[in-house]
């Protein structure tokens, strides 16, 4: 287990460096430095001063691989192009917590709803609850989030006036965005769990459990569910990645002041320092989460730990 964990930990900085290199490469592929503000041509002195402020006078390798990371992490004074009075760290400090709250909320909701839906679909096979669960799954996989979100917004916030239309800060403002963001992933988890549970029911140990005289609920929750949760567990990493970046879309629908607008604007305006910082923050976040899931997987499934490969 220790070796397994160590190997995973060693790969971590390598991965982050690789992502950073790819992001730098993509940024360098685009023409322009993102300093030209548009309508008017800047006087050469102003442009030169701006370039110096953002370290564009340095060679690219020094800028990307020494000065910018240093100014971002230690000095915390790396300015963003499009908001000249703001440093990248200040922007992140204002926007990131909002996106993370929404992401964590939606992620927990997706896992809870997904597991409940999958178990309900199997426990109530052939009854109305199965149809509800399967129907919701179909909506979740076939409609884009922004359509679900807008319909919810119009129905619940505008017609019923049950919750505020947008914004962030009060719990009532978080309900609709969290549901919207969670629904597609809850649907996928429910589908995954349902098919895994149905597979588990075909196994011998379930027959054994039944033969012992256990009740249907005990068999389902104690025996089938424990094994059926493994594929769900391994989906958590990709799901987290999709939910945390998917929150950009939901933020736009419900006018939530999170990372979404900054991400889109920074990419469109080629605000290089902000792009790199955002990509790296999300890379660190998601890679550490995936590491956690991997370690958890090793704890739950002993076959992974010893490195044996089941046929």
């Amino acid at each position: 287990m220790l070796r397994f964990a160590l190997r995973r930990l060693l790969a971590f900085p390598l991965l982050l460096f690789a992502i950073y290199a790819v992001a730098v490469l993509l940024i360098m592929a685009a023409p322009g430095e993102g300093l030209e503000t548009g309508e008017k041509e800047l006087p050469p002195e102003v442009l030169a001063a701006k370039r110096a402020a953002y370290n564009y006078d340095q060679p690219w390798w020094q800028r990307y691989f020494w000065t910018w990371p240093k100014r971002l992490i230690w000095d915390r004074d790396l300015p963003a192009h499009q908001y000249e009075d703001w440093t990248v760290v200040e922007i992140m400090r204002a926007a990131l917590p909002v996106s993370l709250q929404l992401g964590v909320l939606a992620f927990s909701l997706a896992v809870l709803l997904g597991i409940a839906g999958g178990v309900a679909a199997v426990a109530f096979r052939g009854r109305i609850l199965e149809h509800i669960s399967v129907g919701l799954c179909l909506i979740g996989i076939s409609l884009p989030t922004f359509v679900i979100g807008t319909v919810l917004l119009v129905a619940v916030a505008l017609w019923l006036k049950a919750v505020p239309v947008g914004g962030w800060g009060r719990p009532s403002q978080a309900i609709l965005p969290a549901i919207t963001l969670a629904l597609p992933y809850a649907a996928y988890i429910a589908r995954l769990l349902r098919s895994a549970l149905l597979d588990a029911y075909a196994e011998d140990y379930i027959r054994t459990a039944r033969a012992k005289g256990l009740t249907g609920a005990r068999v389902l929750l104690d025996h089938a569910l424990r094994n059926a949760l493994l594929p769900v567990l391994s989906y958590l990493g990709p799901a987290a990645a999709a939910i945390f970046t998917g929150s950009f879309v939901v933020e736009k629908i419900f006018t939530i002041p999170g990372m979404g607008t900054h991400v889109v604007e920074s990419i469109n305006n080629r605000d290089q320092s902000l792009i790199l910082a955002t990509v790296m923050v999300y890379a660190v976040l998601l890679a550490s989460f995936n590491l956690l899931v991997d370690l958890l997987y090793g704890v739950v499934d002993p076959r992974i730990r010893v490195g044996a490969r089941p046929a």
Binding site: A11, L15, I19, V22, A23, L26, I27, A29, A30, P31, G32, G237, P238, A240, A241, A242, F244, T245, G246, F248, V263, V264, I267, N268, R270, I275, T278, V279, Y282, A283, L286, A287, F289, N290, D294
Partner: peptide
């Protein structure tokens, strides 16, 4: 292992970055 790691990337971010920057380069 590389595939495992790539699974957890913020793909939407990278796709956006790729679309805009490579698109701009190709247009250029």
């Amino acid at each position: 292992r590389i595939v495992d790691l790539l699974y957890a990337l913020p793909t939407l971010l990278l796709v956006m970055l790729f679309t805009v920057s490579v698109g701009a380069a190709l247009e250029h």
